[in-house]
Design a protein around this nucleic acid. Structure first.
Ligand code: MG
Length: 229
DNA sequence: GCGACAG
DNA sequence: ATCTTGTCGC
């Protein structure tokens, strides 16, 4: 029964949230990893992890394919995406100093979004980078790049709305594990050099999508159904 | 009961 | 988020 399964997921979140520690990152990260998951036809998933140094140069990149079994239910994203995302990060040749996740950290109904789950599970600093809100209120930052405003949940500041490009919709940044809100905002801004999203996040998204597309094209080339004309 | 709802 | 090329606008 799906209801029972998600009841267990909720209990897991409420237990694991006690392990979240939002402490300052002492040293400047030398290896930053962004990870993203693409789910295509037949629920075939591709997770991509991209590692960069403080200068933004690529250190390594991997893609891992696997069937995705868990449906997307708001508030439970990590149970769908984490297993494959973790597999991808573990296959990198380098250990991350901090990991960027697509989704929220503590800006979550139970304060345990995908960035918290990843960070606690892997015991690594983790940051949630979301393009829209799941819960809470995102105050409107000024329109210039670098301006921020509070992301408030139950009267508590759980993150920031961050203008990463002037005149463009803000990102919602919240800490996942072993970082502060300020650490998270500073790092994300430093990585948003050309677009709304941090470069490695954008690259991971692109890699995962292209891996899925390439497989689709290869499969079509071997099928008898594809030659349409 | 209704609306909102990361990806 | 996905299905998907070109096209409109700053
Ligand atoms: Mg994603």
């Amino acid at each position: 029964m799906p209801t029972e399964r998600f009841r267990r997921f909720r209990e897991l979140q409420e237990n694991l949230r006690e392990r979240v520690r939002l402490v300052p990152m002492l040293t400047k990260p030398r290896c930053i990893v962004a990870v993203d998951l693409h789910v295509g036809r037949g629920s075939l998933g591709h997770a991509a992890a991209v590692a960069v140094n403080a200068s933004g140069e690529t250190l390594d990149r991997v893609v891992v394919p696997q069937q995705i079994e868990i449906p997307y239910v708001p508030g439970f994203l990590s149970f769908r995406e984490l297993p494959l995302c973790i597999a991808a990060v573990e296959r990198l040749s380098i250990q991350p100093d901090v990991v960027l996740l697509d989704g929220h950290g503590i800006a979550h109904p139970r304060r345990f979004g995908i960035a918290c789950h990843f960070g606690v599970e892997m015991n690594v600093p983790a940051i949630g980078i979301a393009k829209s809100l799941l819960t809470g209120e995102g105050r409107e930052p000024g329109r210039e790049r670098g301006e921020t405003a509070d992301l408030v949940l139950d009267g508590e500041v759980v993150g920031k709305s961050v203008r990463t490009r002037s005149g463009v919709k803000p990102l919602y940044i919240s800490p996942g594990h072993l970082v502060t809100i300020e650490n998270a905002v500073d790092l994300v801004l430093s990585l948003c050099t050309r677009f709304r999203l941090p470069e490695p996040s954008r690259e991971a998204h692109r890699l995962a999508r292209e891996a899925a597309r390439d497989l689709t094209i290869e499969a079509a080339g071997q099928n008898q159904s594809s030659p349409a004309g």
